[in-house]
Structures are given as C-alpha cells and as structure tokens.
Amino acid sequence: MNNTEQSKTANKGTAVSGVPAKLRKALTYVFLSLWALVVLFPFYWMVLTSVKSYGAYNSEYLPKLYTLSPTFQNYADAFTAVPLANYFLNTVLFTVITTALMLAATVLAAYAFARLEFRGKNLVFVLFLSLMMIPNELVIITNYVTITSLNLRNTFTGLILPSVTSVFYIYLLKENFEQVPDQLYYAAKVDGTSDLKYLFRVMVPLCKPTIVTITILKAIECWNSFVWPRLITDDQNYFLVSNGIQSIRESGFGRENIPAMMAAVVVISLPLILLFLFFRKMIMAGVSRGGLKG
C-alpha cells in the first residue's frame, strides 16, 4: 500500500495539539493563499498598470485595482519610444552565445574529470572545486580593468567572455557523467570509437536531462545579469534588458510614463516565466540541486 495514502487517511479525524484537523487544514490553506497573494500581486499590478492609459493612470490619486478600458498603447510606446527591441535582441544574443560557450567548456572539462586519466587529476579537481568559493564581487574588479584596458568596453566580447565560466556546472555534469557505466566506454573503445565521438554520441545523449538543466539555469542567469553589463556598457546599443529597464526608469520616456515602463517590464519578464512554465519540473529540480540566485 502506498505510504501517502495511508498517512493521509490516518491524519483524518486525528486531533493534533488540541486543534481540530479540519480547522488546521483550513488555516493552512488561508496562510498559503495569503503568501500566494503576496507573490502574485506584483505581477498582477504590473500587468494591470501596463494596460492602463497614461492619462487614466496619472489621474488616479487612489490607484484603482482594475481597469475597464485596457489599452495596448503602452506596449507600442515601449517598443517605439525606447529601443526595447534592441535590448531584447542584445540579451538573446548574449544569452545564447554565453550559454553555448559555457556548455562547450563544461562538457569537455566534465568529461576529462569523469572519464579520462591523467596525472594530478584529483588535485586539479579539488582546485576546481575550491574555485566555487570565490565570490564574483572579488574578481569583477580585475575583470573590469582587464576588459577596459583591452578596449573591449561596449562590445559583446567584453560582455560575454567573463560571464562564461561556471565551476558548479562542471561539477554537476561530472557527477552525472560518472554514473554512465564504464562498460559502455570499454565497448566503444573495442569498437574503435574515439573519445570525442563517444562523448557526443553516448555521454551527452545519456546525460541530456542534466545538460538541459544547466543550460536553462545558465540562460536564466544570463537573462537576468545586471552587474557586469552595467559596469562594462554605457552605450545604449549594448544594453541588456536589466540595464535597459534601469535606463528606462532613469531617463526613459522623457516624462515619467509608468504604464509604458510597466509594459516594458511585462515584456522583459515574460520569456523567463514562459520558460519556467514549460520546464517547471526540470528547473525546480536543478535549482534544488544547488542553483543559487546571483
């Protein structure tokens, strides 16, 4: 018999610490719903404000919780008055290239650690692991100086290169690679398969879930990156969405056009939320295995 089934039935009718089970359950739902409201309300407000017209919004001294005359003018403004599409394109480009480079370096390194034999492997691996503890804030200073003195400010190269590495993903993938049985490798060797071919024909397909997970996590990280792009770009043509939002906020639409600003915010938030809804299980599993924000 299934355990949850049992415990569920067992919980029924049993009073714990004096409060009847039904009341407890009701209170739990109320509490959880309250937090859900706290989480969802900013999203609601953002969408709501983005469809209020400029005039209507500014005439509400007491903000209204709904609108009867939604407009999409703000979305049009967001794309015409500021180069939102450009920010978007930059971010997509940045995300795709950075993630691809990260994947290539990570897959190769993880394979070396998991499958290949070389002198000092364990030592090198421990050194790699210890790199995980280096905080970004410490190394960003020199990277900034390096990129600046290489005249790479306001270039994609300057944006991408320092953002590529992720020691943690190498570790994650190496662990997964090691679960592939050795016999497969020996069988492939007997058949005369090269290491590179074995890696891409056998290892990568077998570990696809992990690879997809780290790809998504890295993509989220790239999409939201703000600090590095802010340091390294001051030319609007190279802004990513985070910086775009910040500049919209500070100089944006010439006047304080909050509905248009919210339209921009909706547009920027949407891709990740969609990605999340599609890959919910994978993302949550990946994050609980050690993804950290920032």
Partner: peptide, 28 residues
C-alpha cells in the same frame, strides 16, 4: 501538510525566482 493544490502553490511560490530582479523591483 496539504495534498490538493500543492503543486499549484509550489509553482506560484517559485515564480519570483525566475523573474528579473530589476524589473519586478520597479513594480515594488
């Protein structure tokens, strides 16, 4: 401690993780 709607709550509660800090900060 709940069974019905648990996944829905979990999904909702996770949303802030996948949002852009700068963007939602503006809403705040």
């Amino acid at each position: 401690s709940i069974k019905p709607l648990r996944e829905l709550y979990q999904t909702v509660f996770f949303l802030p993780y996948v949002t852009n800090t700068l963007a939602v900060g503006l809403v705040f």
